[in-house]
Amino acid sequence: MTRDQLAEQLARLDPGASLNVEESSLAALFGSDRLDDRIVHDIEVFALEHRCSFSMHEHGPHRVIPCFEKDDIF
């Protein structure tokens, strides 16, 4: 996936819908091998540009799922 493809997927989300992306794939899209504070900040800015919020949901001790959620209000 490229950033343009991710942007397209975010644009197609219905208000309130979410999109989960694998942590390693998302980090690679933003030029890193892991999601550190700087990369997460860049992703949050990218999400806001596409009317979404970004969060990290923990699922167990070793699994984190990055999630974009489309804003309810346009």
Rank of each mutant, 00 (worst) to 15 (best):
M1C: 08
D4V: 08
D4H: 12
D4M: 11
Q5I: 04
L6A: 02
E8S: 14
E8C: 09
E8I: 09
E8G: 13
Q9T: 10
L10M: 04
L10H: 04
L13A: 10
L13G: 07
L13M: 12
D14E: 12
P15V: 00
G16W: 10
A17C: 09
A17Q: 12
L19Q: 06
V21Q: 03
V21Y: 02
E22Q: 10
E23V: 01
E23F: 02
L26E: 01
L26R: 01
L26I: 04
A27I: 03
A28Q: 10
A28R: 12
A28P: 02
A28N: 07
L29N: 03
L29A: 04
F30C: 03
G31K: 04
G31R: 04
S32A: 08
D33Q: 04
R34N: 05
R34P: 00
L35Q: 03
D36Q: 11
D37C: 00
R38A: 14
R38I: 11
R38C: 09
R38L: 13
R38T: 13
I39A: 01
V40M: 09
V40C: 10
H41A: 15
H41W: 14
H41Y: 15
I43V: 08
I43S: 01
E44C: 04
E44I: 05
F46P: 02
A47M: 05
A47K: 02
H50S: 10
C52D: 05
C52V: 06
S53I: 14
F54V: 03
F54K: 02
S55E: 11
M56V: 13
M56C: 11
M56I: 13
H57Q: 11
E58L: 12
E58R: 14
H59I: 15
H59V: 15
H59D: 15
H59N: 15
H59C: 14
G60T: 03
P61R: 09
H62C: 10
H62V: 08
I65T: 14
P66E: 01
C67N: 11
C67Q: 11
C67R: 12
F68C: 04
F68L: 06
F68R: 02
E69C: 08
K70T: 11
I73T: 15
I73Y: 15
I73S: 14
F74P: 00
